[in-house]
Design a protein around this nucleic acid. Structure first.
Lengths: 111, 111
DNA sequence: ACGCTATACCTCGCCTGTCAATGTATATTT
DNA sequence: AAATATACATTGACAGGCGAGGTATAGCGT
């Protein structure tokens, strides 16, 4: 039972959206950014990342396009849509509520 | 996509353990306590609750015994073990870490 | 007597997100 | 020539959550 992964479950999409709010990006870059941010203490697995991209794109929250790289491996860029921004905002408020809820529910019960 | 349920995923065990820290209890009572605590905004589903009991008992984190009710439906009481207290403490620190991590990762990326 | 509600437990089977394993391709470094 | 870094993608298994359904006891109203 990897607590970390189970607790982080469901945040993948929000994490991705957060990275697309200010600029378009691609999978590898987002993954690297996360690793740096967390000093390697958490890694969004590739399989998880790419399935999340599919989900988000299918839901209309992001759109993708191939980058015009002239050298190196090709990159699939993602851009956030209005729908994606909406989802991000919703997820953020949901998270604030969930945090309080969990804090309340996991506090030792004294009655 | 019910955010709430996915975000709460993995906290079921900690929630249960929190309720057993100070006194033995049984499924129905724990469920009611949660509903009151959250004013009905969140309900731990029965199926989820009982499967979690099985998991925790099998892991040696709780033990169960039948209550000596002389009237009404019989109750299966649960008591937390040392192992359970240890797990609870671990989950709490994990949660504190996870909270910070998620806050960091879901904050709009500006670089 | 009969149905309804509350208390109290339990299980089966589906759904969904995660992830290990595996595969592809290009460019650079050793 | 081989290893490493960049970059994408899929498959299949696994685990937790939960809808739907089931069992049993007790009390209340009609």
């Amino acid at each position: 039972m990897l607590i970390i992964s189970d607790v982080l479950r469901g945040h993948t999409e929000t994490i991705i959206l957060a990275h697309l709010i200010n600029k378009d990006s691609y999978g590898y870059e987002i993954n690297k950014a996360i690793q740096e941010k967390t000093q390697g203490s958490f890694e969004l697995k590739e399989a998880t990342l790419y399935t999340a991209f599919r989900r988000l794109e299918q839901a209309g929250c992001i759109i993708s396009y191939w980058g015009g790289e002239e050298t190196g491996a090709r990159r699939r860029y993602y851009a956030i849509t209005e729908c994606g921004k909406k989802l991000y905002a919703e997820n953020k408020t949901d998270w604030e509520n969930a945090k309080q809820l969990i804090d309340k529910l996991t506090g030792a019960c004294t009655n």
